[in-house]
Design a protein around this nucleic acid. Sequence first.
DNA 1: CGAGGGTTTGAAGTGCATCAAATAGTGTGG
DNA 2: CCACACTATTTGATGCACTTCAAACCCTCG
Lengths: 239, 239
Amino acid sequence: MTTQNTYSSFLAATTLFGECDENARMRLSVHAIEELATKGKTLFITGDQAPFYYLVRSGWIKLYRETLDGNQAIIDILPAGQIFGESALFEDDHYSCSAEVIEDAKLVRLSLPALKQEMTSNNTLALAMLKAMNRYRHDQSMELEHRALQNAPQRIGCLFLRLIDQHAEGPILLHLPYDKTLLASRLGMQPETFSRALSKLRSETGIVIKGAAIQIESVSQLAAFACSACSSGFPCADK
Amino acid sequence: MTTQNTYSSFLAATTLFGECDENARMRLSVHAIEELATKGKTLFITGDQAPFYYLVRSGWIKLYRETLDGNQAIIDILPAGQIFGESALFEDDHYSCSAEVIEDAKLVRLSLPALKQEMTSNNTLALAMLKAMNRYRHDQSMELEHRALQNAPQRIGCLFLRLIDQHAEGPILLHLPYDKTLLASRLGMQPETFSRALSKLRSETGIVIKGAAIQIESVSQLAAFACSACSSGFPCADK
DNA sequence: CGAGGGTTTGAAGTGCATCAAATAGTGTGG
DNA sequence: CCACACTATTTGATGCACTTCAAACCCTCG
């Protein structure tokens, strides 16, 4: 019988570590610590020494960088199941961006040296990581495309479509996962623009908006509006 | 004595394969073919079956995708030394974008199955690839940042800085590597905007423009103008 | 109830896109 | 070597999407 701890089972649920064997996950989760972090907490900032990387179990995490003149560039906003901080592996053990909790989160803090060690000896893990990195790369290039070719209402519609089950039939209820202000910056626009673009989206696609609750009457109508300026066809979630 | 062929020596010059041993490079370059391609040639399009990946020896290659409504999203424009098409490894052996030659190029066509095979058995290669993927990821996130925070003249200045040796002293001559129209789309703007933004850049930073020849009087002045809206400090090339 | 953030609305400004046309450059055949 | 055709680039005029600044509104939570 293999022994097993709580953390390795968390790892098993991620795409990155799902394919590894149980022993590898045990090795990866040495010194793992569960951490509860409340909204607003900064986990690390650009340039910090990186002794760990993190797994998100619940909540939302913002990754960002700051410019010389005080602006903020959002790198990504991560949901449960994602890993972050692991790229310090390739950056000389320093974080290349800052991380902040934007919705109360359960995190697992994992040892970066353990990951590094495992990576050099475990080809299965390295291949899984390559696959994950390729997905990041693809997602980022889609993000660039969206910023270039979609207007504000389309970007919002596109995000909504990515937050729901794209194959669901009939009306769908969607609850916005975090602040509208943050959604706006996630999509590269101002809060005011987000607000106005959302009402435009409503009038164009018949969605119903009640605060953070969105009701999508017709997914296909929303897709027709949002996805015409995109290179992926409509059900784009499963690629 | 190790045997050696021409192609493996080309591979040795790339960051991706530089750390592999000579035998691995020999295995990777089986069935390698050198190919001359002239400006305008399409090498493959999104969704094509992918039997090879490519190494750029000279010239420039454009990677792009097309949207339903006929627009083009530029993914990247690649100089000599870069590999492309290798991501088909992770995409079920299909290219996830299209590739076109934009300046006459010497290419080496390499076997994708050979890479896949080598990757599964050669951890050094997998780690090198991870490092390369991380760099792509970083570059892309910088690209997103630039599009979000820099205005058109700054983006041009930033590109110029990345095309030169950032530590050089005194005036520098820079020859634009390809069409201004293409540079414009590389930077996510229209040709007209590029033209106007370039003259704005001239008046702001004292650069001298004669067609495709750019003379940079003061690198630091250019950097002061272009890099203030960016999260990297100035010499950003060497990271 | 009242304070404070999040959100919406209004009015005005800016940067880039678009359309149109002029100009410069480049390669061709005579 | 020149005239022509064709493309790349620039310039001008106008429009639109998004931003910015300002103020009102709303909602939640002590």
